[in-house]
Design a protein around this nucleic acid. Structure first.
Length: 297
DNA sequence: CTGAGTCAAGGAGTA
DNA sequence: TACTCCTTGACTCAG
């Protein structure tokens, strides 16, 4: 088997380093001084993780959504982009020089397709915040991943609201990608929504296992591939936690799940984000395994 | 110092 | 109506 042209990635923190970009604080404790401390600590660890990644051939890193805690909240006490922009740009230049792609993943509260205008506005605020972070950190190839809209009983209407809310958001759309979920949006169903927004589709292998839309994993990967244009195609890889509820992430990646992705996508140029509780410890063996198969280069 | 309870936020399902 | 769960961990405070 030839070496797949893949890069690997993990999420938000690094156990080897004891580093994290997930530091946050309570809204009730939100002061400029405390927020500044958190942001600076998160950024310092982000830089350490970027360097670690470069040393270990890990090409992608997800940045914690709370890199700037409450960065999209009206109560945030200062202009974080102004104060931390220089530090973010510096890390971005470092990462770009090391060919490391930084990504984000706004959470389940972000619902730009909601029927509630207040929810839409708060969701857009979070998406604009994420786009701003990426534009400072990673203007070249940053990506933020969002799930399809909650259907609310009428998928088509929800999709139309979702598209309408995002259509004018140039900065957001520049970084946005849509990810299949285990219940409502298979890769196949998500493609037309993404196409209308002009954004790419992230195929998540675990979600695909529960909700395949009638496609094999290979079909899903190949269908999503052209949505990435010349960019590397982002894919999420994880394994079901033993005894956990459906969708719960395992500590590591099951070898069978790696084999499945290799069989389905070895011919594609992928960025494989590993969603595993052990973070980089789950990725390092995969980097080694895929390199071993190719023989020493 | 430790462990339990809690944390901005939405939506869907269950009781 | 009230409660649970998301992807998780970090924060807070009572003891």
């Amino acid at each position: 088997m030839s070496l797949p042209d893949w890069r690997w990635g993990y999420l938000c923190e690094n156990r080897t380093l004891g580093a994290t970009t997930l530091r946050t604080l309570r809204l009730g404790n939100l002061t400029a001084e405390r927020a500044r401390d958190k942001v600076q600590a998160n950024l310092a660890d982000l830089e350490r993780m970027v360097r670690f990644n470069a040393e270990h051939c890990i090409g992608v890193l997800r940045v914690g959504q709370q890199l700037v805690p409450f960065g999209s909240h009206p109560a945030f006490p200062y202009d974080w982009a102004e104060e931390h922009g220089a530090a973010m740009r510096q890390i971005g230049v470092l990462a770009a020089g090391l060919s490391i792609c930084l990504t984000m993943h706004p959470g389940q509260f972000v619902q730009p397709g909601s029927t509630d205008p207040g929810v839409v506005e708060r969701s857009l605020a979070e998406l604009r915040y994420s786009a701003r972070v990426l534009s400072l950190l990673n203007p070249g190839d940053g990506v933020m991943v969002l799930h399809g809209p909650a259907p609310g009983g009428d998928r088509e209407a929800a999709a139309e609201r979702f598209i309408a809310a995002l259509a004018g958001e140039t900065e957001v759309l520049r970084y946005l990608a849509l990810e299949n979920d285990e219940r409502w949006w298979s890769v196949r169903e998500l493609l037309p929504v993404a196409e209308r927004l002009g954004v790419p589709v992230v195929a998540d292998t675990l979600h695909h296992g529960w909700n395949d839309g009638g496609w094999t994993l290979r079909e899903a990967l190949e269908a999503a591939s052209p949505t990435w244009g010349g960019r590397r195609q982002k894919v999420h890889l994880s394994s079901q936690a033993e005894g956990g509820r459906p969708g719960a992430h395992a500590e590591l990646v099951d070898p069978a799940d790696l084999e499945q992705l290799l069989a389905a996508g070895s011919h594609l140029r992928l960025d494989v984000m590993v969603e595993a509780k052990a973070k980089e410890l789950a990725v390092l063996p995969l980097v080694g395994e895929t390199a071993r198969r190719a023989g020493v280069r």
